[in-house]
């Protein structure tokens, strides 16, 4: 029951505020409270090289680059230091199986922290 209800509640709350795409592995806290899945290239580790001179997106020219927004918010919003510190961490590839599920459940069960067996980063602090 909860598994069916929570994704609905989460979507209703997060869609209007963050344009949530229900990837099921929310990283908002570490990306300046800006959803990287709203980047047309769904980049989770920073902007591409196509950001326009006015700061807008390569793909959608009248939209500000998602990562420009994320970086500005990371700098200016009064977010917890630990969240800001996570901004430059290497976020792993998205687990496509979690699409549409509740990231709240996946957070509690730590399912959202599962990565492929071969995944490792050189930066052990993250």
């Amino acid at each position: 029951m909860l598994k069916k209800l929570l994704p609905f509640v989460e979507h209703v709350l997060k869609k209007p505020v963050w344009d949530c795409r229900m990837c099921g592995q929310c990283v908002l806290h570490s990306t300046g409270m800006t959803c990287p899945m709203t980047c047309p290239k769904t980049l989770r580790n920073g902007p591409c090289g196509g950001v326009r001179e006015n700061g807008n997106c390569e793909v959608i020219p009248d939209m500000q680059c998602v990562w420009l927004k994320a970086y500005d918010r990371k700098v200016y919003l009064p977010l917890p230091t630990v969240w800001k510190d996570h901004f430059n961490e290497l976020r792993p590839p998205v687990d496509m199986r979690l699409q549409g599920s509740s990231s709240w459940i996946n957070l509690v069960t730590k399912r959202d922290q599962q990565t492929p067996a071969g995944w490792s980063t050189t930066d052990e602090s993250h």
Partner: peptide
Amino acid sequence: TGDDVTAGDEPESRRVFDIDSTQAINIARI
């Protein structure tokens, strides 16, 4: 990362971006 499909001559293509360039670098290292 790669230019978007809209930069090319087949803009109707599906864009993949299953992983991003930094993840791809890390996978090459792995």
